[in-house]
Nucleic acid binder design. Structure first.
Lengths: 255, 255
DNA sequence: GCTTGACTCTCCCCTTACGTCATACCCTAT
DNA sequence: ATAGGGTATGACGTAAGGGGAGAGTCAAGC
């Protein structure tokens, strides 16, 4: 009649002593004997039962169910196993979906990865960019520049390209319309769309410092020959035209 | 500026109010405003953030990681997603293993489902069986019978059949060998194999009461014409021959 | 002005299957 | 007798909330 102490049994079965305590307390595996000092002693029968417990535990059965299986001989083990199997398959399917979603997200992330600071100044020579950032910070405050950059960084590369292209198209159109009435409907439409984009770019609310920053950033692009109006009009005149149109737009809106 | 109360936001996003409380307390999603009465009010920005949270939650990210992702813009999201993907695949593989084990168990269970008391007496008329059980209990004690039955029940139907067939084959062989020297090698081999099976049937150690029980159970089978030696030899003579052979075997073993 | 019903707040305990820590006993060998 | 290791018990922590108590708040209808 060899009896196992908690530690011996725990080593034998590869579980912790604390686990045996737990199984005892919940009636899943009670020691065959308690010594005078309340030490737990387990026999062969308990070792066998523990093996069964661990088998079902390996299958991810909750301990409560294991107790029911072992305790109630009338328990429908077959049904339980089939239920469990179904649950596991459902879990597996869910994981498949999750992995699919992650894959899609990863693809999206790789194609249109979030903008880094360098991307914001993409196409502008590095030394010019650094100088401009320093100048902008001195002019409008470090916070303004950082906040504006952060907002811009919130867009994906693709979105950014779309927005920039849209802005370019509007500017082109405005350049075409230059010389006509700045208050006319076509011009005002362009201005409205331009404001909408800028509103988006600046993160919900238009702050004048940020606007200045964006304008200056655009100017840098122009200086770098990244933007040239279709008809080669100098940007100063275009800016003047736009200013008049915008003034009217703002007056109309606040009315 | 529309603000959402906890309930409104919870309905909008399909989470519980309690969850919003939790997310607030752990800094995952804080309301934009608290009223004088400490009511939580959420704005559009919070709604968007909640959407992001739920996206990652759907992917089974722990909330702590979600907090890190949303809070730290330098967080390597791509790496995190790939790690997570790997973890999910590992989980999936584990589930595959589990389902495989369950399938095997189910097959085993269906083919060789555990023996019930009736199965032990399979083929013996019911009334005879009941009478025999009562008699056996009176003769060798209730505990002996129950313990023997329990041991037998530990075998699957298939195992049981195999063991019974093996025993029958051995008995047949012994019947063939009857009249030869009980101490000869062929007979002793049969006896050894017979002991091995009985040892297995009796659960590791041979107790005389149990042996008696098994012998009597076998007799019942014979009486029920379930076992007839190939040459139609009466069982009494066979038993005598076996006894001699066994006596020699035991003497040899203990020497 | 008052009540009523719907909301909301915070605090606390409950869940699973343990792990960890603290404190107090126990046992055996030297 | 004491040192070391073994043991028992209780309390607390985990992740992501669920459930409920007790108290406060808000808007509508009378």
């Amino acid at each position: 009649m060899d009896k196992y102490s908690v530690k011996k049994l725990s080593r034998l079965a590869g579980v912790s002593v604390r686990t045996l305590h737990l199984y005892d307390r919940m009636g899943l595996l009670e020691p065959s004997v308690r010594t005078e000092a309340r030490y737990r002693l387990y026999g062969e029968k308990e070792l066998l039962r523990l093996q069964q417990i661990l088998f079902y535990r390996e299958l991810d059965f909750p301990l409560k169910d294991i107790l029911a299986i072992l305790e109630d001989p009338a328990f429908d083990l077959e049904q339980a196993l089939e239920d469990h199997r179904k649950a596991l398959l459902a879990k597996k399917e869910r994981i498949d979906t999750l992995v699919g979603t992650i894959d899609k997200t990863l693809v999206t992330l790789k194609n249109k990865s979030m903008l880094q600071v360098e991307d914001l100044y993409d196409g502008i020579p590095n030394e010019k960019m650094e100088a401009y950032r320093a100048e902008a910070m001195a002019k409008w405050g470090k916070d303004t520049v950082l906040s504006a950059e952060e907002t811009l960084r919130g867009f994906s590369k693709d979105e950014m390209k779309v927005l920039q292209r849209e802005l370019t198209r509007i500017n082109d159109r405005l350049a075409e319309l230059m010389g006509t009435d700045p208050k006319s409907a076509p011009v005002q439409e362009c201005i409205a769309r331009r404001f909408a984009i800028i509103l988006k770019l600046s993160g919900g609310k238009i702050e004048m410092e940020k606007l200045e920053y964006f304008r200056k950033l655009g100017e840098l692009y122009v200086q770098d020959n990244r933007y040239t109006p279709v008809n080669g009009m100098p940007s100063m005149e275009l800016a003047q035209f736009m200013k008049e149109a915008m003034d009217h737009y703002i007056a109309q809106q606040s009315a």
